[in-house]
């Protein structure tokens, strides 16, 4: 199982990293939705402009926070970890359900002594 390692000595930084990472993920989803709405043709030009400016401001703020806290790398690492976690979960869906429940070893044959 993938574990996310947060240094206990830097729990505060770890917490900020976690929060900023979650914010980034939400922001990405928000950005995709904004692009989708822009392409839908249902937004007026002014609305598109306002939406874009707001997102840009949020992104600038998040980047600024990351820089001031020195957590750019740890946020990136955590996102990679989360990617791996999701990937493992997706791979797990493809496997035989019973296999995923096996213990760390497999019994082939014979009698218990």
């Amino acid at each position: 199982m993938t574990t996310i390692d947060i240094d206990e000595d830097e729990a505060g930084t770890g917490l900020i990293t976690l929060v900023v990472t979650v914010v980034e993920i939400l922001f990405d989803a928000l950005e995709r939705e904004a692009v989708r709405r822009m392409e839908s043709g249902r937004l007026a030009d002014e609305e598109i402009e306002r939406l874009g400016r707001q997102l840009q401001a949020i992104e600038t703020e998040v980047e600024s926070l990351k820089a001031s806290e020195g957590i750019e790398e740890s946020v990136s690492d955590l996102r990679d970890d989360l990617d791996g976690l999701v990937w493992d979960a997706l791979e797990g869906l493809d496997e035989d359900h019973s296999r995923s429940k096996k213990p760390g070893y497999t019994v082939f044959r014979g009698e218990h002594e």
Binding site: K102, P103, G104, Y105, T106, V107, F108, R109, G110, H112
Partner: peptide
């Protein structure tokens, strides 16, 4: 589900 180890065990790697 747990297996009862018998003759041949294999720690999965």
């Amino acid at each position: 589900m747990t297996h009862e180890p018998t003759s041949l065990e294999n720690e999965q790697v």
